[in-house]
């Protein structure tokens, strides 16, 4: 292993940790925002109002048909135009992730909601519960239970996708690793290390999915 110098990683750890924190922060905020907006999209798409469901369907199909990196660019240039002032790379990237993830989450949720028997809604209606209460107390809790494994899988993909934020000059874990790799001239060591870190985090996530799946199945 002569010629390899892994000590560079140790000295770069604080810098890399900052990058990893950004990756986590983006992932978590995008999951929360994406879930919230995704629920609304799913309900809109399944609602009886033709126009509303058409708008939601168009949005979902449009977003799912373009690469994420393009969506990140869009919002980087679009949001300042709409708001009239620049919002910085972080917020534009976050908005892009939320909008993008919501499209995927809404499809996952639509499947989850459809998996809840129609009779459950009728039972709710027959006791005088209104639409929102039926969704909130009867349908969504059951739907979420069914779709947790798929949602976690999507979250793992999202975590990996945060590496794309280098295009708007944000320094996530991947970008930070690249910077260290190039400035220290230790490409192999750094990219190996980055791969190990991604693997450990994502594999732990996959194991969680498997455990959740067996739990949901019972």
């Amino acid at each position: 292993m002569s010629g390899f110098d892994f000590s560079v990683i140790v000295s770069a750890l604080p810098f890399l940790w900052e990058g990893l924190q950004l990756s986590f922060l983006l992932t978590i905020l995008a999951i929360i925002g994406g879930l919230g907006f995704g629920v609304l999209l799913a309900l809109a798409r399944m609602s009886g109002f033709r126009l509303l469901s058409l708008v939601a369907a168009t949005y979902v199909n449009l977003i799912r048909s373009v690469p994420l990196i393009l969506v990140i660019f869009w919002f980087y240039f679009l949001v300042p135009l709409v708001l009239g002032r620049p919002v910085g790379g972080f917020y534009s990237a976050l908005i892009a992730f939320v909008m993008f993830e919501a499209a995927y989450y809404s499809e996952i949720m639509r499947a989850g909601i459809k998996s809840v028997a129609k009779g459950q809604v009728q039972a709710g209606k027959s006791t005088g519960l209104g639409y929102w209460r039926i969704q909130r107390h009867i349908v969504l809790p059951q739907a979420f239970r069914n779709m947790i494994p798929v949602l976690v899988t999507q979250a793992i993909i999202l975590f990996q996708d945060t590496s794309l934020v280098f295009v708007v000059s944000l320094r996530d874990f991947m970008t930070a690793s690249s910077i260290v790799a190039r400035t220290e001239g230790r490409l192999v060591e750094m990219y190996l290390f980055a791969a190990v870190v991604y693997f450990v985090i994502c594999f732990a996530g996959s194991l969680t999915v498997r455990r959740l799946q067996s739990k949901v199945a019972t």
Partner: peptide, 17 residues
Amino acid sequence: TQLRARIGMVFQHFELY
């Protein structure tokens, strides 16, 4: 919704939550 609150209904497949 108000009317249904006053009429009970029991289903073939129970539909408990």
